[in-house]
Design a protein around this nucleic acid. Sequence first.
DNA 1: TATATAATGTAATAACATTACACTATTTTA
DNA 2: TAAAATAGTGTAATGTTATTACATTATATA
Lengths: 133, 133
Amino acid sequence: MICEDQGAALTPLRREVFELLLRHDRPVGAYELLDELKSLRPKAAPVTVYRALDFLLELGLVHKVNALNAFSACRGQEADHRGLVLICRSCKATVELEDHKIDNTIRRSAAELGFEAGDEPVEVVGTCASCRA
Amino acid sequence: MICEDQGAALTPLRREVFELLLRHDRPVGAYELLDELKSLRPKAAPVTVYRALDFLLELGLVHKVNALNAFSACRGQEADHRGLVLICRSCKATVELEDHKIDNTIRRSAAELGFEAGDEPVEVVGTCASCRA
DNA sequence: TATATAATGTAATAACATTACACTATTTTA
DNA sequence: TAAAATAGTGTAATGTTATTACATTATATA
């Protein structure tokens, strides 16, 4: 599992935000998260959530899904967080796919152009099985 | 080249927005585009730009770059617009990479999970050569 | 020409994200 | 341990990106 403090300060606030994210099986917007956080911490403001998210992103405990402007707790089993995330444009569901072969191919192609790919999963937008039916 | 009317109504307004995009060699934000459009059309409002962009996106003349919340004219040589776009997190420069091999591999992996990948290029965020130096 | 449809104008607001500065808690070190 | 430094949080305001709703104008079709 994830969750262990990696030397940095996983404060109660930051842990709360992370645990809220873990409760969802889909990416969640910052303001939705804020609403939920408010039941624990009435003082919470947008920046409260964004700061906690920045921290968690830096630690690699959370991913930002650009296609949805939303955040998801990282469930990856491995140390790095490379791979693909499939995003359904219609129901917003996502599936993580830890395929190092594809990921390495992408990285190599990028490297040929002098470009060093980061560690965020690559986003693939499309349509999931249920929404196609 | 691109630009030919594909049966749909490429009105003056829409063409103007598209041509503004073509002038840039990088993705451009909607509000930056709006500022530029205003010199041609003082009446332009945010929705003016977004509507034109929606139209151009649908036609496949323009891509949205989610990682930057910005839009770029599509320069792809081919009918479909599949491939990769490399995005430098530091200078925001982008490079399009029309690699069907990678793209097909991604699509197949997605398909194994019942997921049908769309036609938007896959975004790879990282660091470009000059910014690494 | 009358009607329908598509496109655009106009205003307001929603959704997402950051900046600036004050205050508190924790850690460091003299 | 007191003073200073650093890290974390509170509070308010604002900046940025995107959409909704409805009125008006232009274009196509009967």
